[in-house]
Simulated scan of single mutants.
Amino acid sequence: MSGRSRGDISETLFNQIYPYQVALTALEVQMRFNEVNSLSRQLECSRLNRTAWCWNEGYVIYCFALKSQAEAFLQAFDAEWVDPKERMRQKWVSRWRRIEVGRLG
Rank of each mutant, 00 (worst) to 15 (best):
S94I: 04
Q30N: 07
A72R: 14
I99E: 07
R98M: 10
S68L: 12
W81S: 10
R95Y: 03
M31W: 01
V82T: 14
Y59T: 00
Y18L: 09
F73Y: 03
N15L: 06
I17D: 02
F77M: 10
Y18A: 11
Q16V: 05
N15R: 05
V93M: 13
E86K: 11
E28P: 02
R32A: 07
N37H: 10
N34E: 01
G7I: 05
R103C: 06
G58D: 13
Q30S: 09
S40F: 00
F14Y: 06
A76Q: 11
R41K: 14
S46R: 06
L48Q: 15
C54T: 07
A70I: 13
S10L: 02
I17R: 14
A65N: 05
Q69N: 14
L104Y: 03
K67C: 08
I17Q: 12
R32S: 12
A23Q: 06
S94Q: 05
C45K: 03
L74A: 08
I61V: 15
E71A: 11
A52D: 04
C63A: 14
I61H: 01
Y62A: 05
E86H: 06
A76E: 12
T51G: 08
G58V: 09
S10V: 00
P84L: 11
E28W: 00
S38I: 00
C54A: 10
E57H: 09
R6L: 10
S10E: 09
A70C: 12
K91Q: 14
E35N: 07
D8Y: 02
R95M: 11
D8L: 10
A79D: 07
R50I: 05
A23M: 11
S94P: 14
L27S: 08
A76C: 09
V93H: 09
M1C: 08
R6M: 09
W55E: 09
L24Q: 02
Y20G: 13
S10K: 08
E80R: 03
K91E: 08
Y18E: 12
L48R: 15
G105T: 08
T25V: 03
T25P: 00
C63K: 02
D8Q: 15
W92Y: 04
F33R: 15
S46K: 06
S38N: 09
S40W: 01
K91H: 09
G102T: 09
W81T: 14
L24W: 01
C54S: 15
A23G: 13
A72P: 05
F64Y: 04
T12H: 07
W92H: 03
L74K: 09
A52E: 05
L24G: 06
L39R: 05
R4K: 13
R50E: 12
C45V: 02
Q30C: 02
R41F: 01
E86P: 03
Q90H: 10
P84S: 11
Y62R: 04
V22N: 08
A23Y: 01
R6K: 12
Y20N: 15
N37R: 15
W96K: 13
L27V: 03
L27M: 04
C45P: 02
E57V: 04
W53E: 12
